[in-house]
Design a protein around this nucleic acid. Structure first.
Length: 492
RNA sequence: CGAGAAGUAGCGCAGUUGGUAGCGUACCACGUUCGGGACGUGGGGGUCGGGCGUUCGAGUCGCCUCUUCUCGACCA
């Protein structure tokens, strides 16, 4: 009873917050806006990291690490970029503390003021491009494909566990290319890496598309995005890949000599996903019983709960369980035998459901006698009794089914909440119901801004791979001609 | 930074016209339980956010202050 979670339908935000904390994923820290990621939550993040990292390496990207602190002067070279981040930066001004001469405690030593302030990175384009300058002189040095896993700080006014915190973990890839075409191809390749990861690992259906100029990354010529729909119908930007053109190369004076002996500025991309993906995972699959994890990302894929009255029974059941555990591990699955002898089975069932473990096996004296086990799946909350023999193979297949089923469920939900909308009056009421609206737009930032001001809805993307439309029409707001439908939604 | 609300046990809360601190849950011990979040008995735990004031007496009234949350502006 202690861990009961708010119902989704009652208050989606509270449900989400409760769930994150009660499933042991994360909690608010003492520092305002910051988050403690707990071991169970971090284990999921680590799985995401390792899958993404392997994908990056398979396309030739290497990991590196750049400094946390960026000198203020570096940061202020790309005007558009600084305008995008200036309002949310943490700044280091001193480098020493001292005992308060007036009493107890410590104060900042006024003598230790830095000559030039250091900015705690909100993103690393600036420090990376000032470094790349020294790495690049010839076309033979290109491309450079680096990624770093790190934390960044954006001093947000309002925060939400995983979705928006003052400090968050992410990966940021930064690449340098000799040609525009190559950089654009890279931008597209990386957004597809993200889309593939979201779909296959996170069981998250996403729409790949271009951001509108208003929603573009500060300093980018084009931003590609993967957009997902949460269960409350809001959109969540799950990952982005930016084509930066020559903007950063020009700001940081990064030139190379091409194979004709001429000086050229290099072409850049950057791309990233963050611990926000954890929020996407939680908000797209979980139910009123708690978290639902896709097997690919579940730190524990199978949990086994023994049911017993006596020590003898407990030991007998555990012996069988460890046998099954071995078989499952041989098939590459992570298994936990919940042998805690202070908790009742019902409590354990509820707890593992809350934590989203995809498959649960229960076994008791009755099963020992009959040679059976009870297998329960988290996604459907159904259970069946089956023969102990062959159970490992069955579960091997079952995990795969669960992965697919979770994806299908999320996909059906999304498709059921994507609809076309052709009149402004209709738009204003439809948008408040949640979901994605496919609408015609005249392509101007002014129209997008006006729609945002009136309804809070923004263009999530101009779709590239699903819901693609080249149907001509008239803009829902201005009535001017439009070349195709774009995705409008209220977003996180 | 604008608008609202709240600070009392680990967490969630109650506390009447001012009278000296309580409930639920969690925690600890023992016993009975154990196939869907067990029950009984006993136990430990509090500078009531902080300061000043009114009063014989303040969790309660007044003033000041700090912090947090929700909603806006900002944002992956």
């Amino acid at each position: 009873m202690a861990k009961e979670v708010t119902k989704r339908s009652e208050n989606y935000s509270q449900w989400y917050n409760d769930l994150v904390m009660k499933a042991d994923l994360a909690e608010q820290s003492a520092v305002r806006g910051c988050m403690v990621i707990k071991p169970y939550g971090y284990a999921i993040w680590e799985k995401m990291q390792s899958i993404l990292d392997a994908k990056f390496k398979s396309v030739g990207v290497q990991n590196a690490y750049f400094p946390l602190f960026i000198p203020k002067s570096f940061f202020s070279r790309e005007a558009e970029h600084v305008a995008g981040f200036a309002k949310e930066c943490a700044v280091v001004t001193h480098h020493r503390l001292m005992n308060d001469p007036k009493g107890k405690g410590v104060v900042v030593d006024p003598e230790a003021k830095l000559e030039e302030e250091l900015i705690v990175r909100p993103t690393s384009e600036t420090i990376i491009w000032s470094t790349y300058k020294h790495w690049i002189t010839s076309w033979r040095d290109l491309p450079i494909l680096c990624n770093q896993w790190c934390n960044v700080v954006r001093w947000e006014m309002r925060t939400r566990l995983f979705l928006r915190t003052a400090e968050f973990l992410w990966q940021e890839g930064h690449t340098a290319h000799a040609t525009s075409a190559e950089a654009e191809a890279m931008t597209k390749q990386m957004v597809n890496v993200y889309a593939d990861f979201a779909r296959s690992a996170m069981a998250l259906p996403v729409i790949v598309g271009h951001k509108s100029p208003n929603e573009r990354f500060a300093g980018a010529l084009d931003t590609l995005t993967i957009e997902a729909m949460m269960q409350d119908g809001k959109a969540l930007q799950a990952g982005t890949s930016h084509f930066l053109g020559q903007n950063f190369a020009k700001s940081f004076d990064v030139q190379f000599t091409n194979n004709e002996g001429k000086q050229e500025h290099v072409w850049a991309t950057s791309w990233g996903v963050s611990t926000r993906l954890m929020g996407a995972l939680i908000m797209s699959h979980s139910d009123d019983e708690g978290l639902v994890l896709p097997p690919v990302l579940a730190p524990i894929q199978v949990v086994m709960v023994p049911i017993y009255r006596t020590d003898e029974e407990h030991n007998a059941v555990l012996d069988k369980m460890y046998e099954v555990k071995k078989q499952l591990e041989a098939l590459g699955h992570s298994v936990k035998v919940d042998d805690r002898d202070t908790l009742r089975p019902g409590f354990k069932f509820a707890e593992w459901e809350l934590k989203g473990v995809p498959v649960r096996i229960a076994m008791g004296a009755r099963d020992l006698q009959n040679g059976t086990v009870e297998v329960a799946r988290r996604d459907t909350l159904t259970k069946e009794t089956m023969n102990l023999e062959g159970v490992a193979e069955h579960i091997h297949g079952l995990l795969d089914d669960i992965q697919k089923n979770i994806y299908q469920k999320a996909l059906s939900f999304r498709d059921a909440n994507v609809r076309k909308c052709d009149s402004w009056e209709e738009f204003k009421t439809e948008i408040t119901k949640g979901g994605f609206l496919l609408c015609h737009w005249d392509g101007t930032p002014e129209t997008e801004q006006a729609i945002k001001d009136e309804t809070k809805a923004t263009i999530r993307c101009i779709p590239m791979d699903s819901y693609v439309s080249d149907e001509e029409g008239t803009c829902i707001y201005s009535g001017k001609p439009s070349k195709g439908r774009v995705v409008f939604a209220i977003s996180y």
